[in-house]
């Protein structure tokens, strides 16, 4: 029992450390309820936006940096996962994508050995759509490809693209940055490569990256950059996020956000935390 209690204590210490980091970066906490309309909360973003939408538009001072914490229900595993959900609300443009990525890197830096255990995988729904359009894929097929990828069905997405779009199809497999840029230049020479390079540089100095346009994020509100930070050899994400647009009660919200899974983070930094407390 002592071990169990100690572990709980460490997990809460980790949560406090993460929260303090966001508070120090001028993020505001937004308390959200664990159930919405009779359903368990699976995502904080909708709840955050519903709460903020209850304020008159004139009260909003954008960009707004907020976070919410608490468990979300994971129906796949039938369990609750302790999370922190972070949102940068405003125009949700490339600057905010970069800001979110830099924020994640600052968080990872808290644990010097964490970066070497992680890989950041980047996808981009906007680029995927542009690549398909450049190969004259019909809008209805583009929609089906996005749906298939969101459902985790790469077989169907590749099959839809097979006859006419070999270049886009190549972008649906994970690649190093250099290979990705080469493949993208071949498909979409007019893409904003400067922005892609800025994102890559922000991450590359800390950890390995892979680019994969089959990564579309878990939620239908994502529109452009999506990302997952994976723990090597563990098979679970440390965080997932992306740029989104969401209509809530007649108000359109743009932003970039991510969900940090505290259980996975604890698993990754447990040894470092134990060493830190031992050194103290």
């Amino acid at each position: 029992m002592d071990e169990w209690l100690k572990q709980n204590r460490s997990e809460y210490a980790l949560m406090i450390r993460v929260i303090n980091q966001f508070l120090a970066q001028s993020f505001f906490p937004v308390p959200t309820a664990p159930a919405q309309s009779g359903h368990y909360r699976e995502d904080h973003t909708q709840s955050i936006l519903e709460l903020l939408s209850s304020f008159p538009e004139s009260h909003l001072n954008l960009p707004l940096k907020v976070f919410s914490l608490g468990p979300v229900y994971d129906p796949g595993h039938g369990r609750w996962a302790e999370t922190v959900d972070v949102e940068i609300l405003g125009e949700g443009g490339p600057q905010h994508e970069l800001m979110a990525v830099q924020l994640i890197m600052q968080l990872i830096e808290q644990w010097p050995r964490l970066a070497e255990k992680t890989v950041m995988v980047m996808g981009h729904l906007g680029l995927l759509d542009q690549a398909m359009a450049a190969e004259a894929v019909l809008p209805v097929v583009r929609h089906s490809v996005r749906d298939a990828l969101r459902a985790g069905n790469l077989v169907q997405a590749e099959s839809l693209l097979a006859p006419t779009s070999p270049k886009t199809r190549r972008l649906l497999l994970p690649k190093t940055y250099d290979d990705f840029v080469r493949a993208l230049q071949d498909t979409l020479p007019e893409a904003d490569f400067d922005h892609i390079a800025r994102l890559q540089n922000a991450i590359d100095q800390h950890m390995a990256t892979r680019w994969d346009l089959s990564l579309t994020g878990n939620w239908p509100y994502y529109t452009d950059l999506v990302f997952s930070l994976y723990l090597k050899d563990i098979g679970q994400p440390l965080l997932n996020g992306g740029r989104f647009m969401a209509d809530v009660h007649g108000r359109t919200w743009h932003g970039v956000g991510f969900t940090l899974y505290l259980d996975s983070l604890y698993q990754a930094v447990q040894q470092e935390m134990e060493q830190e407390s031992h050194d103290l």
């Binding site: 995988v121 985790g152 997952s228 994976y230 050899d233 563990i234 098979g235 994400p237």
Partner: peptide, 8 residues
């Protein structure tokens, strides 16, 4: 495939 392992 496991999405994490597939991409890393």
């Amino acid at each position: 495939a496991n999405p994490s392992h597939w991409r890393t």
